[in-house]
Design a protein around this nucleic acid. Structure first.
Length: 566
RNA sequence: CGGGGUGUAGCUCAGCCUGGCAGAGCGCUACGUUCGGGACGUAGAGGCCACAGGUUCAAAUCCUGUCACCCCGACCA
């Protein structure tokens, strides 16, 4: 490709809207053009990078035994109603109607569709196991798209779904997908770690996310430096700080004027925060729930949702609070009726805790579970924080930010039952397939590739993702010796199946070198009178900056060396 | 949805407080000089100052409303 013909415009300064490095470089190097929040167009150069990522994914998925298919992005809404997700996904779904007013959605994911496809082809255990995947456009009306390609409203996803006869063989399908993911991220130059993730109240067993650790990530990950345990914040298991032991003392009502927060209350009474009970009110699927947790801990809403087997949990609104007569700041489970009480073990096991008196400006000291109040549900619903003890080895957990690059998930039979993906087993019995699902966001991966591979001057593509293999900078093209050498170079590199971006623009050397660094192709070859005098062309490794003059007939091998080494 | 910020040339921004000809740098076009790390000169093109309404003799500038974009949070199969 000749740069004089390529529709590409680099920018000296990044547009002000960009915050992340990847976003800035995507715009400066001209890979994408914004259309609206969460919507981007790809230019020829950017599109090549994206397609190369897809190629890696496709090769590794095929190698793992998965079979590529393609589903419509437009889905009849009925199958989403069949699984209950038309409602569950709420406003995230882009909805539309056809001319006959039949309802459709633009697929945000394809469990329903893939199940429907599988159900038409799977009849017997002899047809199993099978893993299907597609690389396809997804639509999600995200409340807040962000970070350039990190969170989009329309994006490409590689989504795969495995169908097995049982949980035991699902393990093999899951492991195959897991291994494929490890290879995909390695080839694409994105360092990831697998972390345990929440599988949700809808069932499922194991769920792991592949997380790229970066301070600009939107997810929080807890890591144990002791045993290597890694989990996202919603899933992380830990041991909370111990309670202060003691024999139960008689409860007592005390006047606590103006003390509404745990911190104020503890200071006012001269106790530690872990000697109090925090009262939090939630709405679980629309119904009120009272949550009690030790004062020094916070509620993990995902764990709470799972404990309640609820579809949705949200903080209680003012109206419901008032209607139920709850006294925010002085509420407690003591004497509370009319709603279920969920308690974290921390609030149950610790003796002599300070709790609200359900009366403004009054609290109770020395309350004890079982004696003064009783939880309807006791479940671990506390949020892990930096420094908490690892549940496995006791080491203090660390917190890191990260980007979720991929997710592998043992789904179970939720969708196969709802859609009817059934098979006949050896005994002639009809059973639902046990499913797994596996996703990678392709644009987000491109963003991560750049986050992980750049320097002050621009992108430093991993060779397998780079839009071109070799960037040829031609200087002094008015000199016949240069055009002649360029022609030879083109031929030899072409024979080696190396793709070339040739800067034949009538610009100064400085501009060309700056652009070459910005665009980040791994190998740069400069064809110029100066290099020719020294007996060849100049070869430069984008990453190391190492530069040397190489004879024309050795360039292809040398370039290949840089590409293979990186 | 809550909080904050920004909308002026393709990009980065000044001008707004204190109303009075629409500006700079980069980029773009032409010509000339340059020619190995974002060169220089000359001459140009390019604007619904986000949009709507109001105040005023006069609005990029003041007032009201709306929209868009970005950031933080909430949310996120």
């Amino acid at each position: 490709m000749r740069m004089s013909k390529l529709m590409l415009k680099t920018l000296r300064e990044p547009p002000s809207e960009a915050e992340l490095v990847s976003h800035k470089l995507l715009l400066r190097a001209g890979l994408v053009t914004p259309f609206a929040a969460g919507l981007y167009s790809f230019t020829p150069f950017g599109w090549r990078a994206l397609r190369r990522i897809e190629t890696i994914i496709r090769e590794e998925m095929d190698l793992s035994g998965a079979q590529e298919v393609h589903l419509p992005a437009l889905n009849p809404i009925e199958m989403w109603e069949q699984t209950g997700r038309a409602e569950a996904m709420g406003q995230t779904l882009f909805r539309l109607a056809d001319r006959k007013e039949r309802g459709f959605i633009l697929g945000p994911t394809h469990e329903e569709g893939m199940s429907l496809l599988a159900s038409r082809h799977i009849q017997s255990y002899r047809d199993l196991p099978v893993t299907l995947y597609q690389i396809q456009t997804k639509f999600r009306d995200e409340p807040r798209p962000r970070g350039g390609l990190v969170r989009l409203r329309e994006f490409t996803m590689k989504d795969a779904y495995s169908f097995d006869t049982g949980w035991d063989t699902l393990d093999a399908s899951y492991d195959a997908a897991f291994e494929a993911y490890v290879r995909i991220f390695r080839r694409a130059g994105v360092p990831v770690i697998p972390v345990a993730a929440d599988s949700g109240a809808i069932g499922g067993k194991d769920s792991q996310e592949f997380v790229f650790l970066t301070d600009d990530g939107e997810d929080e990950v807890l890591l144990c430096p002791g045993c290597g345990y890694a989990a996202n914040a919603e899933k992380a298991e830990f041991t909370p700080p111990p309670a202060i032991a003691g024999e139960p003392l008689p409860a007592e009502r005390v006047h606590t004027p103006g003390q509404r927060t745990i911190a104020d209350l503890a200071r006012f009474l001269g106790v530690e925060e872990r000697q109090t009970v925090k009262a939090v009110f939630y709405k679980a699927d629309g119904k009120p729930v009272f949550v009690a947790i030790r004062g020094d801990l916070d509620v993990n809403e995902v764990k709470l949702k799972n404990a309640l087997r609820a579809k949705d949990v949200e903080p209680m609104d003012e109206a419901m609070l008032r209607a139920l007569g709850l006294v925010a700041g002085s509420a407690s489970a003591v004497g509370l009726t009319g709603m279920p009480i969920v308690a974290d073990p921390s609030a149950v096991e610790a003796p002599n805790l300070v709790a609200g008196a359900n009366e403004a400006d009054y609290h109770l000291v020395n309350t004890n579970h079982a004696r003064d109040w009783t939880a309807d549900v006791i479940a671990e619903i506390a949020l892990a924080r930096r420094g908490d003890a690892c549940a496995t080895c006791g080491t203090a957990l660390e917190v890191r930010r990260g980007m979720e690059m991929g997710h592998v998930f043992k789904l179970g039979t939720i969708y196969s039952e709802a859609i009817g993906v059934l098979y006949l087993d050896e005994l002639g019995e009809r059973k639902p397939c046990v499913m797994g699902c596996y996703g990678i966001g392709v644009e987000r991966m491109l963003a991560a590739v750049i986050e992980a591979n750049h320097d002050d001057n621009g992108i430093t593509w991993p060779p397998e993702v780079s839009p071109y293999d070799v960037h040829v900078v031609a200087l002094n093209l008015d000199q016949p010796a240069v055009t002649e050498a360029l022609a030879q170079l083109e031929q030899r590199l072409g024979e080696e199946k190396l793709s070339l971006l040739i800067d034949d623009r009538d610009d100064s050397a400085g501009i060309k070198f700056k652009d070459a660094d910005l665009l980040g192709i791994p190998v740069r070859v400069t064809v110029s009178p100066r290099a020719l005098e020294k007996g060849g062309v100049e070869l430069r490794d984008r990453r190391s900056g190492e530069t040397r003059v190489v004879a024309l007939d050795a360039v292809a091998a040398e370039a290949r060396g840089i590409l293979d080494r990186a």
